[in-house]
Design a protein around this nucleic acid. Structure first.
Lengths: 165, 165
DNA sequence: CACTTCTTTCACAACTTCGTGAAGCATGTA
DNA sequence: TACATGCTTCACGAAGTTGTGAAAGAAGTG
């Protein structure tokens, strides 16, 4: 496969910054977003802390904080090369699917709070009814996300076949 | 329907703050989130600027800024009572569905940037292939969102029947 | 054309967030 | 045990947001 030296470093860096920026706009903290984008551009999906610091021109401290975030939300896993003291960070497979579909917690909270709201307003009031419908909507979204993951897997299989073979 | 005075004001206020907080956590700016939550708790879905200021204990300036945001993103519309000088803000119907599904712009940007990334890395590299699959994923999500809206409409009809009649 | 009422604009202060440098800590090597 | 390497913690300063009060603006009324 293409080696690093073949790449248009400038263009890759530009991609990292642009895509990182978009991710940041969607709510991912800046540094983690940039690191994620950088990992995406590696063939192996792996990068050492030092490489990250160098690529993004950030301090070791910033790397430390950001990878902590990424590992906490399980987007990145930490590895250690045997015989080395360096940590290597690997982008976990299927980050996108998981990040997209793993909204359960948030949706659960929404459901809870909306239930309280219906209670407080009375299910027989207009406002209570609106809240109840809102609640049903989020429940619907929740259920859809589950089946969507299955559909994506199927779609992916097909796409890979058409695309590669 | 239930009048305002029947309500447990405390409980309603608590709901407003909780739900507003959740919305804020998902990226909606604080004040707009709280206002939206407050509008949800009204039977009419309408509130004057003064009522908002009073309910949420914020300055008229804050109301002004927040409703500007909400009207810009088309979650709220401004009305004027004939014979009054007060602006009334109405929550538009179907806010959730629209807010949830109207991600087209963002997904378009992602698609663009990922295409650049594939270009920069070379489609034949591992990294390029990963990016390409990522791109396909977001395209898939985009198409799903469209059909999901239809499914929601159908689901809603059914739910309303079972629920009310 | 003053007056009243409501909304908007603007400069500022409070608050948060973020990344850094420096120091500390853990772990491996001689 | 001393030393080297690399990660983490922490206090600080920079930067960006956010909401406020004050003043200006807009629009109806007498």
């Amino acid at each position: 496969m293409t080696s690093t030296t073949d790449r248009d470093t400038q263009a890759v860096s530009q991609f990292v910054e642009r895509f990182g920026g978009i991710l940041a706009d969607t709510g991912v903290p800046r540094m983690p977003a940039r690191i994620l984008a950088a990992l995406l551009t590696t063939d192996s999906g792996r990068l050492t802390a030092a490489e990250i610091a160098d690529l993004l021109q950030i301090s070791p401290a910033a790397v430390s904080g950001a990878v902590r975030y990424l590992t906490t939300v399980q987007i990145v896993s930490r590895e250690r090369e045997p015989g080395s003291r360096r940590d290597v960070y690997r982008m976990r497979d299927n980050v996108w699917y998981e990040a997209t579909f793993r909204k359960d917690q948030m949706l659960g909270m929404i459901d809870e709070v909306l239930a309280e709201g219906v209670e407080a307003l009375g299910a027989d009031s207009d406002a209570g009814a609106r809240l109840d419908e809102t609640r049903e909507f989020f429940r619907f979204v929740h259920s859809e996300l589950g089946s969507m993951l299955d559909r994506w897997r199927a779609h992916r299989e097909k796409w890979l076949e058409e695309h590669q073979g």
